[in-house]
Amino acid sequence: MSWKSGAAAGLRQGGLWVGFVLFMAIVAINAPAFLSPGNLLDVLRQVSITGTIALGVTFVVIAGRLDLSVGSGLTLLTIIIVDQHNHAGPAGAIALTLLAGLAIGAWNGLLVGFLRFNALIVTLAMLSVLQGLALWYSGGSNVSVSSPGWFAVFGRGTWLGIPVPVLLMLAGAALAAFLLRRTAFGRAVFAVGGNETAALFSGISPARTVFLAYLLSGFSTALGAIIMGSRVMGAQSTIGQGYELNVLAGIILGGTSLMGGAGSIWRTLWGVLMLGFIQNGLILMGFPFYAQWLVTWGVIIAAVWIDLAAKRGRMLA
C-alpha cells in the first residue's frame, strides 16, 4: 500500500470523489463566487496551517500512534514566535520556535517511543501542559508583533500570485512525501506502524522510529506557528484551540488509517483540503460556521465506514 493505493482505497476514493464533486457543484450553483480563483486561493490559504501541521502528524499516525498535543503546541509556539519577534528579531524568533517545536516532539517521542506510554494519554496530557505553558508565557493577555518586518512574508506574502503559506505547505508536503516514500526512515515508519514486532525482528528500532516521527510532528507544528504568527502578527492563549481535531479529521478523511501502517502525505493534504472546501462552501451558501462541524461528523463516519467495508470485501475475495 505504500506505492499505490489498493483497489479498496480506490473504490473508496472514487465514492468520496463523486460525493465531493457533487458537493462542489451544488455550492458552485448556489454561490458562483465559490470557484473563482480568488476564493480557491482563499481556501488554500485557510488550510495552509492545518495542512502544514498535518504533514508531521501523518508520520506519527502511519507509525501507529497519535498526536493530540498539536493544538496547544500551536498556541504555545505562536505565542513564542510573536513575543520573541520583539526581543530576538525575526530570525532568532524563528530559530527559537523551531527548537521549541522539536523539544515538544522529543518529549512526546521519549514517552511514547522509548518508554512505551500510551500515545493518546501522553499527548492529551501534553495538550494540558502546553496550554498551561502558553497561558504562563503570555500571562493570559494578547501578545503582538510591534514592528513587523520581513517576517510578514510567511503568512501574508504572495509569490507569482500564490500565497506564500500555500507554497510553504506544498514545499513541506513535497519534502515530507519524499521522506516518507523514498527514504529508509520512511520505510521504517511504515514497517513500525504495519507490524511493530516484524520491524523489531528486522533490526529496526520501533522506539527510535516513533521518536523521530514525533520530532517531525513537533517541527511541523512549529512551521504552522510561523505561518500563524506571521499572518496574525499577534497571539493569545486560544489561538491554536481545536487544531488537533482539524488535523486528525483531515488525516482520517484522507484515508490514512489510525491503525497505522498505511497512508500518504498527498492523501492527508487531500483530506485537509476537502475539509477546507466543505467549510468554505457551507459558509458561502450562507450556513453558519458551525454547520461544517456537523458535515465533518457525517463525512468522517461515512468515509471510514466505507473504507472498512471495502477492506472486508477484499479480505473475503
Binding site: M1, S2, W3, R182, T183, A184, F185, G186, R187, A188, F190, A191, G194, N195, T197, A198, A199, F201, S202, G203, I204, G261, A262
Partner: peptide, 28 residues
C-alpha cells in the same frame, strides 16, 4: 506476527532489514 509486515508488498519486506544497504544518504 514476527516475520512480515503483511500490509506492505514483497519488495518492501525484502529490504526491511537492509534499509542501509539499499540506500545512499538515507535515500532508497
Amino acid at each position: 506476527e514476527q516475520g512480515l509486515v503483511l500490509g506492505l508488498g514483497g519488495r518492501d519486506n525484502i529490504v526491511l532489514p537492509s534499509l542501509k544497504a539499499f540506500s545512499r544518504l538515507g535515500i532508497m
